[in-house]
Design a protein around this nucleic acid. Structure first.
Length: 593
RNA sequence: GCCCUCGUAGUGUAAUCGGAUAACAUAUCUGUCUUCGGAACAGAGGACUGCAGGUUCGAGUCCUGCCGAGGGCACCA
């Protein structure tokens, strides 16, 4: 299924250009790949191309003349989706979508419902690595971006016809667990019997684990030898020492239970949670392969991966004490994922700080002959920062996600208490709605900003509940639904679009329709550029168009019967498309608010 | 020192592979309510898009240099 945008580019413009070639107006083999279709600003049409500007330059003619020629050739094709083509200085060609096209899209929304905008299965698989929370650390605000953006990308690709595999690459391995096991053993377990130890381990909370971890770093500043003890403990862990394993496993259990609460609150479910430790016994084969392919080299007691022509700095495969590194584990993970799922595209939703590391991993996978490096994509998101700088687990100045979510929910509750329409609701219903609104606000705040940007953490901004925010969109849907509930009118009947055909549609109604029909194109663009924020922009635009229409024109009290039906259909379609958008973003819609 | 990312009204952001008068929110000011849900709508003011060059018919976007912020550069992940 081609979107109108794709049709204009791929068929209509292509035909026009070929015609001009035959007429020898322009030379043959003009490369249409350089051309794109834009959305012009309001009033100038639905689609635009600057093709004539480029052609004019190429053949040394006035772009306006070329634009007129293109317009002529396009008009000869009798395009049913296009009502009008205009030429504008200095050589733009603007397209206005036809009533037939808009009516057809409206019908499609009403028919296809939650499927509107989706694509048929394309047989390709996307594997996305996101969230990647760390064991024994609280679910920090820092993991929010990865979790939310990753889930949105996962949803968008699934909607676009891809088979999707989501992986939560749990951080459950590394020297840090040496630090923690050392600390737990020294501080809490030393000299205790096995039974006592089991009992103590069961009782830990994640907050205590975090506190121990922070204390370690404080103490290590005065006593650097602690770092060596930690490395020894990590080595024990790698060698399967019973005590080390026991402590480590207890940490995992406690952490997973804790994370489950947050994922539930966020409404996120990741297909597979696989810890880094899972790949431990798989690194050996990778290292052997690297050695066979002459890509590994010994250096200062460690084993490093070297890139030909120093394309990238070397990466470490084995530490000098022969312990594995996250580089070798990440490579082993790729090998495992290829075997298990045969993905066509590997996406890593991981902080921008890992940019170099992932470049090294991707290029290594290519050099090893597994995959091409352009099959990998790193969505390197910017961090949440406090006004003073980065949040750090080591220093203990993190903001816990649970705190943020609870605060958001509390703020939403206050608004609900003041809401007239929700005053008859039971307390537990209000609580549930507050959850949907609070969590939605936080998700939207995050998703609406491009992933590459840093976000300075500010309670008032992250919890914004009006203007360009999650609740604004939720409110638009709820209001649509409220109107629809007030009528038993069947808007899905023949004659729905008579008004359109008779040209009796106002500018406000036309704007809503125009916005709705862009949805499939926006989904495709959001997928291509891994940018959920485009969907946020779209949903906000549509809500604004609808709110303006709602303000200006009566729906249930429309003058004519056919107007009422049409406007109800518009309301239904708006609610549907907004719900589809929010669904992809992972934002729920309350029944009332 | 080298490498990567980011710099847009007071604040927070948008602008898709270079397109038209740089859009939106917030804050400030002014309006809209006997009408379908005011968490709404309309209007006003507010920008040499960090600075200086360059490429182009056209630059917030590409290139060069500088300034600023953040991150990275082998035994943390």
């Amino acid at each position: 299924m081609m979107t109108l945008k794709e049709k204009i580019l791929g068929i209509y413009l292509n035909n026009a250009v070929r015609q001009l070639e035959i007429q020898k107006v322009i030379p043959f083999d003009f490369d249409l790949a350089k051309i794109k279709i834009d959305y012009p600003s309001f009033g100038r049409g639905d689609y635009a191309t600057s093709l004539a500007l480029q052609l004019g330059k190429l053949i040394g003619k006035d772009s306006m003349d070329v634009a007129e020629l293109l317009k002529l050739e396009l008009e000869k094709q009798n395009l049913k989706e296009i009502e009008k083509i205009e030429v504008a200085a200095p050589g733009f060609v603007n397209f206005f979508a036809s009533k037939e096209f808009l009516a057809e899209e409206l019908r499609k929304v009403l028919e296809e419902k939650e499927g509107y905008g989706s694509s048929e299965k394309n047989g390709k698989t996307l594997l996305i690595d996101y969230s990647a929370v760390n064991i024994a650390k609280p679910f920090g605000i820092g993991h929010l971006r990865s979790t939310i953006i990753g889930q949105a990308i996962y949803n968008i690709y699934g909607f676009s016809g891809w088979k999707t595999v989501g992986i939560n690459h749990l951080g459950d391995w590394g020297t840090q667990y040496g630090k923690l096991t050392y600390q737990i053993f020294e501080k809490k377990l030393k000299g205790k019997s096995i039974d006592q130890i089991a009992e103590i381990l069961k009782g830990f909370t994640i907050a205590e684990l975090e506190k121990l971890y922070v204390e370690f770093h404080q103490e290590a500043e005065a006593k650097p030898e602690l770092e060596d003890f930690a490395r020894q403990w990590f080595k024990k862990l790698e060698e399967g020492d019973e005590m080390a394993r026991m402590i480590w496993q207890a940490c995992i259990k406690i952490s997973l239970e804790e994370f489950k609460k947050i994922y539930d609150l966020l409404g996120v479910e990741i297909d597979h949670a696989i810890g880094e430790s899972f790949y431990l016994d798989k690194t050996e084969a990778v290292i052997k392969e690297a050695e066979e392919k002459k890509l590994a080299k010994e250096s200062e007691g460690a084993l490093i991966f070297e890139y030909p022509d120093e394309a990238l700095p070397p990466a470490m495969l084995l530490k000098s004490d022969k312990a594995s590194t996250y580089f070798s584990r990440d490579l082993a993970a790729i090998e495992y994922r290829i075997k298990e799922w045969h993905p066509d595209l590997f996406v890593y939703e991981v902080g921008a700080e890992q940019s170099l590391h992932l470049k090294q991993v991707f290029l290594a996978a290519e050099l090893l002959g597994w995959e091409k490096k352009d099959q990998f994509f790193h969505i390197g998101h910017g961090f949440y920062r406090s006004a003073e700088g980065k949040f750090s687990t080591r220093k203990g100045n993190t903001i816990h996600l649970e705190e943020v979510l609870n605060e958001a929910i509390t703020r939403a509750e206050k608004l609900i208490d003041n809401s007239v329409s929700a005053k008859d609701l039971k307390p537990e219903e209000k609580k549930e709605i507050a959850k949907v609104i609070g969590v939605g606000a936080i998700k939207y705040n995050d998703l609406s900003q491009h992933y590459s940007k840093e976000i300075v953490f500010d309670w008032d901004k992250i919890l914004n509940l009006k203007g360009n925010s999650g609740p604004y969109l939720q409110y638009a849907v709820v209001r649509c639904q409220s109107i629809l509930e007030k009528t038993s009118e069947n808007w899905q009947r023949p004659g729905l679009c008579q008004l359109l055909e008779k040209n009796e549609v106002s500018a406000e109604e036309r704007a809503v329709l125009g916005a709705i029909s862009k949805f499939p194109e926006i989904v495709a663009e959001a997928a291509r550029t891994f940018s959920p924020n485009l969907l946020c922009n779209f949903a906000f635009d549509l809500s604004q168009s609808y709110n303006l229409f709602y303000e200006k024109l009566p729906i249930l009290k429309a003058e004519k019967e056919e107007q009422k039906i049409f406007r109800l259909a518009l309301t239904k379609a708006t609610a549907q498309v907004l719900k589809n958008s929010l669904g992809l973003l992972g934002i729920e819609v309350p029944k009332k608010m």
